[in-house]
Structures are given as structure tokens and as C-alpha cells.
């Protein structure tokens, strides 16, 4: 059992969710409420990581993060270490590959709020920020929770992108999914089985907990 890999995976999923939470709320709400030219294109771009093979996405990210790319150079200029094959690069790649899982459910959640309720919030004197906090978020909360659960689960299970962008550096970029693959490659099916079972247990517990929680919130909103 590779505890370092498990800890790394959980840390990666945690960071990804932490970054995607505000992104999903702001981008999901923006896409739900605003009509603008090129909206379909933006929505398509958000969905793209869902459709592309992880290796293709990983390849482009590898190029974009590379030492010679503008992003890679800017990053190493700022932090003195390369973006590629690092934990930070892995987080960024996870955020991008989980974007559709985070934005879509949140957007649907916001879209389900009747326009009249948002108008009522404005007529009650609520600024857009206050309305977000007092009306939009409480009503769209189940969608946002679903978005976060999916992002967490997806990051935990992501393989292709992580392998392309991070390689398999122990303690830095070797996640549990990659550790399992390594063990299988080394014919160590015993370790692979234990780690797989642990991953299944964690995933089931997370999802069951959030569903139970959101059911309670749902009853409260009744």
C-alpha cells in the first residue's frame, strides 16, 4: 500500500475542488444568467475536456506548461521551478480537466432558479453580490455540491492527464491511480488490489456522505 500516493491523490483532489468551487459558482452563474455573443463557444470550450481523450488534453497541457512555453517560463520566473512534472502543474491540469464536471452541474443549478426570484431579490434592495449569497447560492446549492463531488471523484480517478503532465515522481506527482498501474506493471497484484479497494471505499464514502448531506439540505429547503 502506497500511502504517499494516496495522500498525494487526496491533496490533489482537495486543491482541485478548492479552486473549482469559486470557479464553478462564478462561471456557472455567469453562463446561467447572461446571454452574450459567443456563449455557445464558451460552453463548448468548458465541455471540451469531457470529450477529448485524456492523452490529447495531457499532450496539449504538457506543451503549454513546458519549459519553453510562455506559461512555463513565466511560472519558473515567478517560483523558480518548472510547472511541468510538479505538483502545482498537476493541480492546474486537474482543474482544467475537471472543469466540465464543476461548471455544468452548477450552471444547471443556477438555471433552475426562476428569473422572478432574482428580480424579487433586486426589488428587495439586494446588490448582485448579496443576492448571490442570500438567494442564488442557497437555491443552487445542490447543483454546486454535485459539481464538487464529481470534480473530487474525477480528480481522484484521473489517469491519462496526470501521467502526461506529471509523470510518476513519488511524493510529487505519483497519484494512487498511477501507483496502482505501476504495481500491476510490476505484477504486484496484491498491492494493486488493496489500493484499488481503498480507492473504491473512499469514493463510495465521499459520494454517499455528500448525497446524504444534500438530501438533508433539500429537505430543509423543501
Amino acid at each position: 500500500m502506497d500511502w504517499t500516493a494516496l495522500e498525494l491523490s487526496l491533496r490533489l483532489a482537495g486543491w482541485t475542488v478548492a479552486i473549482l468551487l469559486p470557479v464553478s459558482i462564478l462561471l456557472g452563474r455567469f453562463l446561467a444568467f447572461r446571454q452574450f455573443r459567443g456563449k455557445a463557444l464558451v460552453e463548448a470550450l468548458v465541455m471540451l475536456p469531457l470529450i477529448l481523450p485524456p492523452t490529447v488534453l495531457g499532450f496539449y497541457l504538457l506543451v503549454a506548461f513546458g519549459r519553453t512555453s510562455p506559461l512555463g517560463q513565466a511560472w519558473s520566473g515567478l517560483f523558480g521551478q518548472p510547472l511541468v512534472f510538479s505538483f502545482a502543474g498537476l493541480v492546474l491540469a486537474s482543474v482544467l480537466s475537471s472543469l466540465p464536471f464543476a461548471v455544468q452541474p452548477a450552471q444547471r443549478g443556477f438555471q433552475a432558479i426562476s428569473p422572478e426570484l432574482r428580480e424579487a431579490a433586486a426589488c428587495c434592495g439586494m446588490s448582485p453580490w448579496r443576492a448571490l449569497w442570500k438567494v442564488d447560492l442557497p437555491l443552487a446549492w445542490p447543483g454546486v455540491v454535485t459539481a464538487m463531488v464529481l470534480s473530487f471523484a474525477h480528480t481522484l480517478g484521473e489517469f491519462g492527464v496526470v501521467l502526461m503532465v506529471g509523470g510518476a515522481i513519488p511524493g510529487e506527482t505519483r497519484t494512487i491511480a498511477i501507483a496502482i498501474y505501476d504495481r500491476v506493471q510490476a505484477f504486484d497484484t496484491g498491492s494493486a488490489a488493496v489500493m484499488s479497494a481503498v480507492l473504491v471505499a473512499i469514493s463510495v464514502t465521499t459520494i454517499a456522505l455528500t448525497f446524504a448531506l444534500s438530501a438533508r439540505i433539500g429537505r430543509r429547503l423543501g
Binding site: E116, A120, V135, L221
Partner: peptide, 14 residues
Amino acid sequence: RVGLVFQNYALFPH
């Protein structure tokens, strides 16, 4: 400073 009563009331359900 406007008070508007909507046709379907638009009360905040939560």
C-alpha cells in the same frame, strides 16, 4: 426604493 408584489409572489422558498 420600490416595493413590488409579483403576480406569483416570488417568495424565497428557502
